[in-house]
């Protein structure tokens, strides 16, 4: 599963960044990438067990926000026309593929930014 690769990247980061030592981290799962939270959590727990690691984490789904570079309108996942299973899967692998399948709901432009909620990020205080 692709979720395992991303979970592995989170654990590797926490293990190597001194600023994350003994911190409780929040893992943001970008709504756009549509990570399966259950699989991701299972992968995290299994990998932590294998490494005998004590990392404390919580998971939050980060809402995706887009902004059109032509008309300036911000838009959300709920405004995007429902995509096929294959298209959703390709966005899941590489979130930038949203640019191949989605246009601004107002002006139909293909030129928009992913403002937030793209993929996996680690948040900490």
């Amino acid at each position: 599963m692709h979720e395992w690769a991303l979970a592995e990247s989170v654990i590797k980061t926490v293990e190597t960044k001194p600023e994350l030592k003994n911190k409780k981290i929040k893992i943001l799962l970008g709504e756009l990438q549509d990570i399966d939270e259950e699989i991701f959590r299972f992968a995290m727990d299994e990998l932590l067990k294998q490494r005998e690691s004590q990392i404390k984490y919580s998971i939050v789904v980060d809402e995706a926000v887009f902004k059109c570079n032509e008309c300036g309108r911000e838009f959300f996942m709920s405004e995007i026309t429902k995509k096929s299973k294959a298209q959703r899967e390709n966005i899941h692998f590489i979130p930038e593929m949203v640019k191949a399948f989605v246009k601004c709901p107002v002006c139909d432009s293909i030129d928009f930014d992913i403002v937030k909620g793209r993929g996996v990020m680690i948040s900490y205080d």
Partner: peptide, 28 residues
């Protein structure tokens, strides 16, 4: 290849998108 994920659709990316797409493919 990125071809596997584009389903042969034309698309355009700005600089930050290219950086993110490269990083994602190398990571996974």
């Amino acid at each position: 290849s990125f071809y596997f994920f584009t389903m042969s659709k034309p698309f355009a990316l700005r600089g930050n998108d290219i950086k993110d797409a490269v990083k994602e493919l190398l990571c996974v």
